[in-house]
Every structure is written in structure tokens, then in C-alpha cells.
Amino acid sequence: MGWIEWQVGSGLNIASILLVVIVVAAMLIWVERRLLGFWQDRLGPNRVGPFGLLQVVADMIKIFTKEDWVPPFADRFSFVLAPTIIMIVILLSFSVVPFAPGVGVVDSNVGVLFVLAMASLGAYSVMLGGLSSDNKYALLGSLRAAAQMVSYEVFMGISLLGVVALAGTFNLREIVEVQENGWFVVPQFVGFLIFLIAGVAESHRLPFDIPEAEQEICAGYHTEYSGMKFGMFFVGEYLGLVLISSLITVLFFGGWHGPFGIGLLPPLVWFALKASAFIAFFILLRAAIPRPRYDQLMSYGWLFLLPLSLINLLVTGVVILAAN
């Protein structure tokens, strides 16, 4: 690889990943708006720069220069802390994601658990943001967010266990390597579906953006946020989107492996392609599916997804035992 030493955990690696992830998340603002535009027979932002690409830059300039206001009635410490938590935990989650051979931050034996742990910590951001705002809509939003995130974490974790059982490891890089000859989406299709749904719920993207349902509760937990603190929640949401897409790629779609062992493209490109497809899919979900009611979301999770994921795990276990 010439003078560039691609090695997991190298400083360059870390810096590049951080940069790429954040830039991608920021660009997603533009991507999402354009895609939504097309799906709604519009153009989306196309005025700033070629194809409106500099819209992100304009948005960034705007959001950085906007008045950054903390309400006098808010609890200032936790109000400032909340948006930073979401940024930090999601960026930390990326540290265990194996993007390609040699590209990654750490190779952790407990990668899957680490991701789940970080996702759980993310709930604090939303809760603190809503509670510290001292605003009834924010409080309602944070209560919804807490319930939703805690609930869907359960199915998310259980749906992953099938994959873990098949791969026999919690190490994400090893999980990818195991899939060289066959993606887990085939044996674990139900698990994939559950993880997909739970992932959307975890990142409270539409249609599961119940904590910030603007028609009901203004903007939910970030009602009182403005300026870059709002920007951090905003970018955090897109980071979450990238993370979930990456995880789906890693866990169910063979990571950097091409389909059916096709190695036509560099591994990193395969990874990016697959992740992008899922990102686009998530945006399509937003364009197409209306938001369910809060109680529907909860009963759907506990009464349908939980049994389904348990059955999936049971069946996987039985199959594995039978195969052995």
C-alpha cells in the first residue's frame, strides 16, 4: 500500500474515519433533502453550488453563526451536556465498525456489546435534553424517547444474537470475515428485519420519530435547542443513520465482501455501496411511511417484535444445535 500504512488503530486511520463519518453525516442533510424532493416530485435544494451541494456548507455557516441561546429556565449544565453525549456515543460506536480490511479503529472482542452499550448511553442524551429544557413538550419528548429507546434496545440486542450465535463471536471484524462465503441475511432474515426496524427506532428516524413528533409536541426533546447545540442533535441523528446502515452491512450483508464472492471492487467501496443503499432505504422510509401512534409503537415492539425475535433466536439455536 505504498507509504500509507493502513492498519487498524493507526492515527491516520482514526482521523480519516472520524473525518469521513462526520462529512458523510453532514452531506446526508443534502442527500436526504434531495432524495425526499425527488420522491415527492420536487427538486430539493439545488441552488447553492453545483446540484446544491454547497447547501450543507450554507447550512453549516448558518447554524454556526446562529444565536446560541440557552433558556434562562433551563438547567444549563445538562442542557449543554445533552447534545454532546449523542455525538460522542455515536462516534465511539464507529470505533468498533470494521469498514474494510485494515480500516477501523479497534478490533474489539466485544464489539457488538460495545455498540449496544453505546446505543443505551444515547438514551441519556435525549432524556437529559428534554428534562433540562424545563418545557412540557421537551419533557414529553424525552419521556417518549426514553421508553422507545429502552424498549427497542431489547429487540435489537436479541435480534443480533442469531448472528452472534452463527458467527460464534462478538467481534464485528470476525463476523464480517465469517460471512465471506454467505451473508447472514439469508439465515437470519427475520433477525435482519427486526434489527432494521429496531435500528430505525433507536435512531428515532421517521417513521419512528415519535420523540420529536412536531405535529404533536413541537420538536419534542430539542424544542428549546438552537444554534450548534441543535446542530449536534441534528448531525447526531444522521450519524446514527450512518451507524445503523454500517452495522446492517457488517452484521447481515457481509461487510466489505462483494456478493457471491465477487471481488470486483475494493473492499471499502463495497462497504460504502452497501451502507449507502441502506441510508437511501432509510430516507425512503421517511418519504413513504407515516408515523405510528406512540402506543402502537410500543405494543408493536413488545407484543410482536419481542416474541418474534425470541422465536428467531430459538430457531437459530435449534438449527445450530442440530447442525452440530
Partner: peptide, 15 residues
Amino acid sequence: TLWKVFRHLWVPTDT
């Protein structure tokens, strides 16, 4: 629904 919305990628825009 997803499929129907997705197909709008090829529908000319009204803008």
C-alpha cells in the same frame, strides 16, 4: 408503499 414512493425517482418533477 415503499415501492410506489421509490418509483417517483423517475417521475418528472413539478418544480
